[in-house]
């Protein structure tokens, strides 16, 4: 490795470190949406920080740094989900994902607190949840969200549509279109 290589690598490491420090609140918000728990979110962000800081060279200049950081957080959470499933040691959250929610069973409530909306989001399948959070909360374009999730733009669109339809149904707005079969 030449001095120039080392200098470039170090500059990248500095850039990633500074970017991560500035993005910490947003990464934590994304992780909270994914995990549904403050404790899990902080664990995921911490693990993501470790992964990103120790592998800063994997970030390629030209790629949006924040997109890459969101991708690291998402990957860490998916790894954690797989690990939990392997151990058959599902958390309350994951168990909740596999059974109908109390709100779905007891009918739609007229007024929902923001906490309840958050809970509904955590009850969505994880891939729909991630797409919804990136677009509706992190305000990414479909292309940016697709880059984070490493899927085609069309996949982001369909995941978003399913997530919105489910939430709309639960929010009692009557916009579920699953059985409609209409196409644009």
């Amino acid at each position: 490795m030449t001095d120039e290589d080392r200098r470039t690598g170090a500059a990248v490491a500095d850039f990633v470190r500074a970017g991560m420090a500035a993005q910490l609140p947003r990464l934590r918000r994304f992780a909270l949406g994914l995990t549904g728990s403050v404790e899990d979110a902080d664990e995921v962000v911490q693990a993501a920080c470790e992964k990103a800081l120790s592998g800063a060279e994997r970030w390629v200049a030209g790629m949006r740094l924040d997109s890459w950081l969101y991708r690291v957080v998402h990957t860490v959470w998916l790894d954690e989900l797989r690990r939990r499933k392997r151990r058959r040691n599902l958390t309350g959250l994951e168990e909740a994902m596999e059974r109908p929610s109390p709100s779905a069973l007891s009918g739609v409530e007229a007024r929902l607190t923001l906490e309840e909306v958050r809970r509904m989001i955590t009850e969505l399948p994880s891939e729909q949840r991630a797409a919804l959070l990136l677009v509706c909360v992190e305000e990414m374009s479909y292309r940016e969200a697709a880059a984070v999730l490493d899927v085609p733009v069309g996949t982001v669109m369909s995941r978003l549509a399913r997530a919105r339809a489910q939430l709309a149904e639960r929010l009692g707005k009557g916009a579920g279109r699953a059985a409609d079969g209409t196409r644009g």
Partner: peptide, 18 residues
Amino acid sequence: EALRAVSHAVHQSFAAVE
């Protein structure tokens, strides 16, 4: 309007976290 309400609710539910 129903879909817009979903987007708004999702955004609002996490707006303060940042």
